[in-house]
């Protein structure tokens, strides 16, 4: 099973800034192993972020996103204490959902 993501959500003015670090090998399908056999592609295809049942970002990814992908975005309509829920799905149908509570801005 896939490793958990690291999610950080903090208020920046009236917006919520989200930073996500996912754990995924993001195999391109171009690489060959020591025996010369092609390593099959294994990568995250879709990412969906929601807050208070509203989708705040959805993404589709190809193999060119780096290993252990990093993603950052900002949205309006969240407040401290709300949850940001992020789900990814990879090309093998594997899924992972993690959530983070929005933190108050750093003083």
């Amino acid at each position: 099973m896939a490793e958990p993501m690291k999610i950080r959500a903090t208020m920046q003015g009236d917006k919520v800034e989200v930073k996500v670090l996912m754990n995924h090998e993001m195999e391109t399908g171009q690489r060959k192993d020591a025996k010369g056999a092609t390593v099959p592609a294994h990568f995250i295809q879709s990412v969906v972020a929601t807050c208070n049942d509203k989708t705040v970002l959805s993404a589709q990814w190809g193999t060119a996103v780096s290993k252990n992908p990093f993603l950052s975005f900002r949205f309006k309509g969240g407040k401290p204490g709300d949850k940001v829920i992020i789900t990814w799905t990879d090309n093998k149908g594997d899924k992972r959902t993690d959530e983070a509570v929005i933190a108050a801005p750093a003083a």
Partner: peptide, 16 residues
């Protein structure tokens, strides 16, 4: 490489 859908209320800003 990647495509992001930006719903209303989300900043047109992504970092990856």
């Amino acid at each position: 490489a990647a495509s992001f859908d930006i719903p209303e209320g989300t900043d047109p800003y992504v970092q990856t």
